[in-house]
Nucleic acid binder design. Structure first.
Length: 464
RNA sequence: UCCCCGAUAGCUCAAUUGGUAGAGCGAGCGGCUGUUAACCGCUAGGUCGUAGGUUCGAGUCCUACUCGGGGAGCCA
């Protein structure tokens, strides 16, 4: 079938031509004048196209008059200038084939506003709505912008494994991967699980981060990035957490924390610029119906220089304000959501990059600073979301790394391959992780992370 | 996992101090209309999340559980 996408039809270039479009009915209005108006959407853009159906159509009485929301149709006709006010062009149809009916009494997506909570129970159909169609298109554009950004800069896309044996040191609780039967688990003499009988003959997990596996590629091929799903078995019930989410993790070769921060800032700006430029209609919708400040916020991020502040300086700011904190602030403590939001929303009113955190609250692989107290870490904080990027320069000095792993009580033998990178041609390198869904949230203004991923996985929830 | 709030028609919500359930939207039918989240009229539709308890009487009060939302922790 030679199908014209509705986005192209509305572009108007084929005006005056005979075209065929296909999609799902949003609304139908019948006129006693002997014709009907069908608003058709095919997902190619936010807008519907209006199909005018005349009662001279063979199936006008038998089918067109009974069309309802959700029906799928293929319509052919001439693309003409519209007499109506809300669209410049419309299709004067010569044939409309009803492909799939949709029982209006039972169709879960009514032509009215639904709550997002309700639509989550209709995960297979919610992409038929304005909001979820727009989210899907923006999410897609963000993903293409991510690849675009790195490919333009000569970064290599590396696929790190989903099933891993390393835990990336405290990045989060992990899901076990096993083929052992739950009701018949083989035991060792000491009562522990006998993993030698498992598929991989050892405990394995779903990845919580591709960082450790992408570093070797960085230390041989230069600038690289990994981009894929990650999993956390944390019992987190918040609008900002998922058990399965997507993460982008670039790793820069021969680079320090400054390079890392420059990259992160340019990266975020590239993504938001792409969304604003290429998803105008969708963004207009989000700005009108979801968050009235979202376009302004994104524009502000693109145009402003990110504030770069050391952790130590941030603690100073937080202790000198009259603001009362639920969690007390002192040097050495991890910053809480209230602190991060205060800094980015009230003190700087812009994205903030916090750097040089105390060693004690950061993982083993971060590079120790000369002060022996802090590490070369950086977090990018944005309004509303808080931490959107976390990164660091990696510890490239073998002796320092080993000492640090020892202090952290790690089993060094498990990480022999990671340590090898410091033995054979070690280099300074740095990287960060960006949560895709939080980025989509920030770009769209959607309040709940469950509404920016097609099928959210959260504690006690894996429907669809 | 902790704290707070909620669950009533297909959906979004209302129901006074405990007295036996309503609206809007949607749907069906009819009217009107180059309409556009159209408009006007009529109709159908509910063991008030589940299980106990208090009471002459519970949508309303109490307890537990389930699910949902907000905040927090963990983090991306």
């Amino acid at each position: 079938m030679d199908r014209t996408k509705i986005a192209d039809a509305l572009g108007g270039e084929s005006q005056g031509q005979e075209i065929t479009i296909a999609g799902w009915v949003r609304t139908v209005r019948h006129s006693k004048g002997g014709f009907s108006f069908i608003a058709l959407n095919d997902g190619s853009c936010f807008a519907q196209i209006q199909v005018v159906a005349d009662n001279t159509l063979a199936n006008y009485d038998s089918e067109i008059l009974h069309l309802t929301a959700g029906c799928s149709v293929i319509a052919s006709g001439k693309l003409v200038a519209s007499e109506g006010k809300n669209q410049s062009v419309e299709i004067q149809s010569t044939e409309i084939r009803v492909i799939g009916k949709s029982d209006a009494e039972k169709y879960p997506i009514q032509p009215k506003r639904h709550s997002f909570e309700y639509l989550r129970t209709q995960g297979h159909l919610r992409s038929r709505t304005n909001t979820f169609g727009a989210v899907a298109r923006v999410r897609n554009r963000i993903c293409s912008a991510i690849h675009e950004f790195f490919q333009q800069r000569g970064f290599l896309y590396v696929h790190t494994p989903i099933i891993t044996t390393s835990d990336c040191e405290g990045a989060g609780e992990q899901f076990n991967v096993t083929t052992l039967q739950m009701n018949d688990i083989p035991r060792n003499d000491d009562g522990g699980v006998d993993f030698s009988q498992d598929f991989f003959a050892r405990p394995t997990y779903l990845t919580v981060s591709g960082q450790l596996e992408v570093e070797p590629y960085c230390c041989s091929l230069g600038d690289v990035y990994t981009f894929g799903p990650t999993f956390r078995a944390e019992n987190s019930n918040t609008p900002r957490h998922l058990a399965e989410f997507w993460m982008v993790e670039p790793e820069l070769a021969f680079a320090d924390l400054q390079c890392d921060m420059d990259l992160a800032e340019a990266f975020l700006k590239h993504i938001f610029r792409a969304v604003l430029e290429d998803c105008r209609e969708d963004m207009q919708f989000f700005n009108e119906r979801i968050d009235k400040t979202v376009i302004e916020t994104l524009t502000h991020v693109i145009e402003s220089d990110f504030e770069r502040v050391t952790y130590t300086k941030a603690i100073e700011i937080l202790t000198q304000t009259d603001r009362k904190w639920e969690y007390p602030v002192e040097w050495g403590c991890d910053l809480q959501t209230e602190h991060e939001r205060f800094l980015t929303e009230e003190v700087f009113n812009a994205p903030v990059i916090l750097t040089d955190y105390p060693r004690g609250i950061k993982p083993f692989y971060m590079r120790c600073n000369d002060d022996k107290k802090t590490v070369a870490a950086m977090d990018v904080l944005v309004p509303k979301i808080g931490e959107i990027i976390g990164g660091s320069q990696r510890e490239e000095r073998l002796d320092v790394l080993l000492k640090r792993m020892e202090q952290c009580g790690m089993d060094i033998s498990e990480y022999w391959w990671y340590i090898d990178l410091r033995k054979y041609g070690t280099i300074p390198h740095a990287g960060f992780g960006l949560g895709l869904e939080r980025t989509v949230q920030f770009a769209t203004g959607m309040a709940n992370i469950r509404d920016v991923i097609p099928y959210p996985r959260t504690p006690r929830n894996a429907e669809f």
